[in-house]
């Protein structure tokens, strides 16, 4: 999303804290996948692009605590999250939507939202968040009693985003929200992501559909073989012809 898009004017004035990862080194077993990477959540949507196997999902999993970091620091505002568990990270206000949305198919839409709201101990806060979700995604109102697996791809994405909203998060880590959706639904999925940003959230977005995602991006990172190859605005990226052609296929 460029700076002059109309959506930005409607964004919340109180901006969420910055999620900042510095000098991140991590991997699986003895295999190092991410090599000394710095990344942060910028205002609006920060897109993370890169070829398959470049470590995008792994980096996202370090930010939400599922993959522990070997070196480096992760902070959220003033809070150190370097060694935090996924549970602690969610409670700080960072929620993840995994690839394809990851709805709990055998649960109803209402139950999916309820699972998202487990970190909320007060009933009033829970009800407020549920209202916010239904306000953001009104189409879910009539589907609350339906099994999530019976919904269309676009509706399932609403459930996933709504469920993440129920945690009370103001920073969202989205791993390819358009994965598995038909071309007609891809634009709908991005529109749903924009609704989060309109409500004041910061989003780090992994996406293979680079052309469509670039239209939303406020900031772009490109990861190549576990190293950061680009960190700048979409306008600056357009000057990097080699990066655009070799790694993004544009």
């Amino acid at each position: 999303m460029s700076a002059d898009t109309p959506q930005q004017t409607s964004r919340s004035e109180a901006s969420p804290p910055v999620l900042r990862a510095e000098g991140i080194v991590t991997g699986y077993g003895d295999h190092e996948v991410i090599h000394d990477v710095d990344i942060q959540s910028h205002e609006g949507i920060t897109c993370l692009f890169g070829p398959n196997g470049s470590g995008k999902s792994t980096l996202l999993k370090t930010l939400n605590g599922i993959v522990p970091i070997w070196e480096g620091t992760i902070t959220y505002g003033d809070v150190d999250l370097s060694n935090a568990t996924p549970d602690e990270i969610v409670r700080e206000g960072i929620a993840t939507v995994p690839q394809g949305g990851g709805v709990f198919g055998t649960l109803t839409v209402e139950e999916n939202l309820r699972v998202g709201g487990f970190t909320v101990s007060e009933q009033d806060a829970y009800r407020r968040r549920r209202e916010e979700v239904l306000d953001a995604f009104p189409a879910l109102e009539d589907k609350l009693g339906d099994r999530a697996s019976s919904l269309s791809g676009g509706q399932q994405m609403m459930v996933s985003l709504g469920r993440a909203m129920m945690t009370g998060a103001d920073t969202f880590l989205l791993d390819e929200p358009s994965a598995g959706l038909s071309p007609a639904l891809v634009e709908d999925a991005f529109e749903l992501v924009e609704r989060l940003v309109d409500r004041g959230a910061r989003v780090i977005l992994i996406e293979q559909n680079v052309t469509a995602a670039l239209r939303l991006a406020d900031h772009v990172n490109i990861l190549v073989a576990g190293e950061l190859a680009f960190d700048g605005s979409p306008a600056e990226l357009s000057d990097e012809e080699e990066l655009m052609e070799v790694y993004l296929g544009l």
């Binding site: 939400n64 969610v90 929620a95 993840t96 990851g102 699972v115 993440a164």
Partner: peptide, 9 residues
């Protein structure tokens, strides 16, 4: 994965 990312251990 989705459950973990919602803070479920």
């Amino acid at each position: 994965d989705a459950a973990q990312s919602l803070g479920i251990d």
